[in-house]
């Protein structure tokens, strides 16, 4: 029997260790229609999630479209207003801050976006794009401003002469570098990377992943890496959270998650990833998750995964499982966690 420690998620032992802590975070979008709505309908994009991020680590958040991973990123970034819960950054609940205080604190969290074509204003020169955060927060002026922008270009591996150009003159990879330079300008502590490489060509993806790893070391950055591409997440993350329909279903170190997942969804997700080695194609057993993801506007009762779970039992339909520490440092929300979950490779 798996030892289950009844405890509300990862309770911090040393509070200061956590750069970011998210408690009971919820985001419901009102989708009721008409004037005389008897009943409110909500799309539960993020539904009561808890996690923490340690200083200097990379937390990967994976899941399929509609699981709420990007919404989570936007909530931490304060781009969306949360419905409920706390987002505690460096020990301060961002929800309690207002005005100038919030603006200052928020500058320490930055974001790298998915689409390098829409994340840069086509009407602004590269210099102005990278200088904007510095000007907005009155960090530097004049000659110093120019020098800082040039240094940022150096850091992300772009030529200084590019400062005078417009975004459309660059390739996807170069644009992503510009976006990274902008995110670094305010010397943030936490960077939320929302699918930063999924829009790039394969050979460019690795350049950006390597650049991000290099910058993390150089500037002691902490990353939240949101992606649906599991190989990239595995490569860059220290710990990984798996989301399904607005819930975190599993969260642990990447080794544990990729080798011995405890949640059936994680197992199916890993098994679904094609392995780039033809020698393994016939040796591998694939656990196919059937069906589509249900709508977050109308999630299934009980465990939200029960409609697609190969191991579902009656309890799963009625009772919602809590995220619990099933094994040391390995949290899972499942009534019947896998005893010995299959990792990526399931030998036949």
């Amino acid at each position: 029997m798996v030892q289950i420690v009844e405890e509300k998620n990862n309770k911090p032992t040393e509070q200061e260790e956590y750069l970011l802590e998210v408690k009971g975070l919820k985001k419901y979008f009102d989708i009721s229609e008409g004037w005389f709505k008897k009943e409110k309908h909500y799309l539960r994009a993020v539904d009561n999630i808890d996690f923490f991020v340690k200083q200097g680590e990379t937390l990967g958040i994976v899941g399929e479209s509609g699981c709420g991973k990007s919404t989570t990123g936007n909530l931490i970034m304060q781009l969306l207003d949360k419905t409920e819960g706390e987002i505690i950054f460096e020990g301060v609940d961002l929800g309690t801050l207002k005005g100038e205080e919030l603006r200052k604190k928020r500058a320490e969290i930055q974001m790298i976006f998915q689409d390098p074509y829409s994340s840069l204003n086509p009407r602004m020169r590269v210099f102005d794009i990278i200088a904007e955060p510095l000007i907005t927060h009155h960090v530097v002026k004049g000659k110093d401003l120019q020098n800082q922008v040039y240094e940022l270009l150096d850091v992300v591996g772009l030529d200084r002469s590019y400062a005078r150009r417009y975004p459309h003159e660059f390739s996807g990879g170069q644009r992503q570098r510009i976006g990274i330079a902008r995110a670094l300008a305010l010397k943030p502590k936490l960077i939320i990377c929302d699918e930063p490489v999924s829009a790039l060509d394969v050979s460019i993806q690795s350049q950006i992943l390597n650049l991000m790893a290099k910058l993390q070391k150089e500037f002691q950055l902490t990353y939240i890496f949101i992606a649906h591409g599991l190989p990239a997440v595995k490569h860059i993350s220290d710990r990984v959270a798996v989301m399904y329909l607005g819930k975190i279903v599993e969260i642990t170190t990447k080794e544990k998650l990729f080798d011995h997942p405890l949640h059936p969804y994680t197992e199916g997700l890993l098994s679904a990833v094609p392995i780039a080695d033809p020698e393994l194609r016939d040796k591998k057993h694939r656990i196919l998750i059937e069906g589509d993801m249900p709508s977050p506007a109308n999630p299934p009762s009980g465990c939200r995964f029960h409609t697609r779970c190969p191991y579902a039992q009656d309890t799963c339909k009625s009772e919602e499982p809590k995220l619990m520490e099933a094994k040391p440092d390995h949290f899972v929300a499942c009534h019947f966690p896998l005893k010995e979950g299959h990792g990526v490779l399931i030998e036949k």
Partner: peptide, 26 residues
Amino acid sequence: EREFVKAAKSIGVRNNKIIMKHLLPN
């Protein structure tokens, strides 16, 4: 909805500036 507006918000650019610098020229 384009990401550069989101980027400006996350930098902390004030609304009036976002309107003038990011929306108006576009």
